[in-house]
Design a protein around this nucleic acid. Structure first.
Lengths: 143, 143
DNA sequence: CTTTGACCTGTGAGTAGCTCACAGGTTTTA
DNA sequence: TAAAACCTGTGAGCTACTCACAGGTCAAAG
């Protein structure tokens, strides 16, 4: 299989295939005739696996680790479960942050309902934003 | 005011001040003696404004536009209201996507409860992920 | 008066995960 | 046989900073 073939087989951009290859997630051989990359069924499995894992929120370094463990005939599943728990927690934190942002935004919107626009006068730029203060809960500092 | 002064005045990293200056959000003058950047009260206003706008979800290019409009003595407020509506919609879309992701993740977790780990056998890498399929609602393609 | 430390300068790289552009070589199709 | 479609690797671009580097400047302490 050449780049485009495996890319279509997994439904991704050929550049993504090249990128994953550079990153060491795929390990094609070379066609000595023309120096083209040659992918096999195993690479396709790895690529599909990687895409599913991405959808589940795994990072590329995590996926590489999982694939390497599998190469060494160790079950990556315990690690998968472990990382997955952490990712789930992160996702929930991100959701909470975005919800706070949305709350700030809708609060601002309703506060703006009755405010006039006004022209910048050297003291204020846009009072909509400048006069928006109301004890905003800081989004949790990450990590 | 020097970099550190204005940075402290707005509660940000001095590097952020330098970055905003490079990006054209702040326009300090130069002290010809030592080539240091000199910020004034107007810059501090702009910096504080920018930080609040960032908290409300505005991007740096958006903020720069707003500041430029204000410089030209046009009220940026109509634009602020406009961009803000769009940002709010985006935020809500992001929340929905993340919630879908969380749903997929918790579904996967509970499905994994009773699955054994297994060792990679050349056909599967980690069946936890590979056998997770169950008609996943694709997150909406953005834009 | 000199040293030391804290500050200043600009530039460049790093973060995540791709995506696209470029310039040139190869293969397929008409 | 020539054009179209593919391949190659490398490098830049996206966001909003943050940090590192090497060197210049300045205030206070000794």
């Amino acid at each position: 299989m050449k780049v485009k073939d495996i890319a279509m087989g997994a439904g991704v951009n050929p550049d993504t295939v090249r990128f994953y290859t550079r990153e060491g997630l795929l390990k094609p051989t070379r066609n000595p005739d023309n120096n083209y990359q040659q992918y096999d069924a195993e690479d396709l499995r790895r690529l599909r696996f990687a895409r599913k894992a991405r959808q589940l929120g795994f990072s590329l370094p995590e996926i590489r680790q999982i694939l390497e463990q599998a190469e060494d005939h160790h079950s990556p599943c315990p690690m998968v479960r472990d990382v997955f728990q952490q990712r789930l927690a992160e996702v929930e934190r991100e959701i909470a942050e975005l919800q706070q942002l949305r709350n700030r935004m809708t609060a601002a919107l309703s506060a703006w309902q009755d405010m006039p626009d006004g022209t910048p006068d050297g003291h204020t730029i846009c009072r909509l934003i400048e006069h928006w203060d109301e004890s905003v809960p800081e989004p949790a500092t990450e990590e």
